[in-house]
Amino acid sequence: MTVEVPRRAAAGGFQSQINVMAALFMREMLTRFGTSRTGYVWLLAEPMILATAISTMHYASGHELPNGLPIFLFYAMGYTPFLMFRSVVTRGSNAIKGNMSLLFHSRISLLDVMLARNLMEVVICCAVVTVFLTISSVFFGEVPEQPGLLVAGLLMSALLAHGLSMVIASLQVVLEWVEHLVHPFTYLMMPFSATFYMLDSMPPGTRELLLWNPLVHVHELNRWAIFGDRLVAYYDISYLLAWILGLNLLGLAGLRVARPRLSLSD
C-alpha cells in the first residue's frame, strides 16, 4: 500500500509552528545522542576532540604563524566552522529520508524536518566555538577583535550550508545516487576552502581561483573577526549573501518540487 505524503494544513498559526519545531529538535537530539548524560557530553566532546587533534598536529609540525598568531586557536577556529558546514550538509541532506514517517502528519513540512536537524548541528558548533574562545580568553588573553562580525560569519556559514543541504535533499528524492556523492564532495571541499591556511600566503592567481568558493570568504571573515589587523583577509560579504540567497531560494523551490514525489509505503 502506498499513501501520498500530505501537505501542511493551512491552519495552525505561529505558535503551532514553534511547537512543531521544538518537538522535532528534541527528537533529533534524542535520536542522535540518546537519553543518557554521556550522549550529551559527547555532543560537545566529539567536535572538540577533532578540532584539538588537528590543532595539536599542526603545532607539533613546528610551523609558526605570522605576527604571533596562536596556533591552537587559528586551526581550531578554522576547523570547527568547516565541521559545522560539513555536518549540516551531510546530515541535513538526509533529513527527508530519515524522517519519512513524520511526514504523514500534515502539520510537519519538509522544511520543518530540515530546519530542526540543521539547527541542532549549528547549536553544537556554536557551543564548541564558545568553549574555545572562552579558554583562549581566560588562559591566553586572546579575545576576538570583532565578536559581532564573528557571529555574523558563523550565521552566514550556517545559512550557506542549510541552503546547500536543501538542494541536495531535493535532488536525492529524484536521483537516489546523489546520496553517495555527498560525503566525498564535502571532504574534497576542505583543501579548497582555506580551512587551514590564509589566502595571503597563496600566489595571486591561486588566490583569485579560491575566492570563487564562498566558504573561503567565510573562513577569511572569521579570522579577521578574531585576529583583526594581525593578518590580511580577503572576503566579500555581498558575494557571500548572494550565494546564501541563491542556494536557499533554490533549495526551497526544490522542496516544493520534491514533496509531491514522496510517498509512504508499508
Rank of each mutant, 00 (worst) to 15 (best):
F82R: 14
V257E: 13
E179S: 10
T195D: 02
W42Y: 05
T56G: 03
A225K: 12
V167P: 07
G228A: 10
L149F: 00
G228L: 13
H183M: 05
N19K: 10
M21K: 04
P144M: 09
R27E: 01
M26C: 08
T38Y: 11
I18Q: 11
V41R: 12
E121D: 04
A242V: 15
M198S: 05
T31C: 04
V123I: 14
Y187A: 06
P260T: 11
F139Y: 09
I18N: 04
R27A: 06
M114K: 07
L252W: 15
L65Q: 13
V5L: 07
L171N: 09
R32Y: 01
G251S: 15
D200Q: 06
T2C: 15
T80R: 14
E220K: 03
F74N: 04
P147E: 07
A169L: 11
L149Q: 03
I244C: 15
V143Q: 08
L69M: 08
H63P: 02
H162K: 06
L249C: 07
P191E: 07
P260N: 13
C125M: 15
L24T: 00
L50N: 12
H58E: 12
L164R: 00
H105I: 10
S36P: 04
D112H: 05
V20F: 00
R256I: 01
V131M: 08
M1D: 01
T134Y: 14
P204I: 06
I49S: 05
V257Q: 10
I49L: 09
G62L: 13
R86I: 00
D266F: 06
T206V: 14
H183S: 11
M166H: 02
R37I: 13
G141I: 14
V182G: 06
A10M: 11
F132Y: 11
L264Q: 03
S61D: 15
L103N: 05
M100D: 02
I54K: 15
S61G: 10
P6N: 10
H162C: 01
L245E: 07
F85P: 00
C126K: 04
F140Y: 13
E64W: 15
H180Q: 12
V143C: 05
H219W: 02
P144T: 14
Q17H: 15
L249P: 07
N222K: 09
R230Y: 13
V5D: 13
V182Y: 12
P66N: 02
A45K: 14
A51K: 02
G13M: 02
E64Y: 11
M189S: 06
P214S: 08
Q146N: 11
H217D: 12
F33K: 07
D200N: 07
W212V: 04
D200E: 01
V129R: 02
N248I: 05
N248S: 07
I237Y: 02
M48Q: 05
E145D: 03
Q17V: 06
S109N: 08
F104M: 15
N118T: 04
P214H: 08
A51W: 08
L175T: 13
Q17N: 09
A60T: 06
S201W: 14
Y79S: 11
G12T: 08
V143S: 05
A233E: 13
V167K: 14
R37L: 15
E28Y: 00
M77P: 01
A76I: 04
L50M: 11
H183E: 01
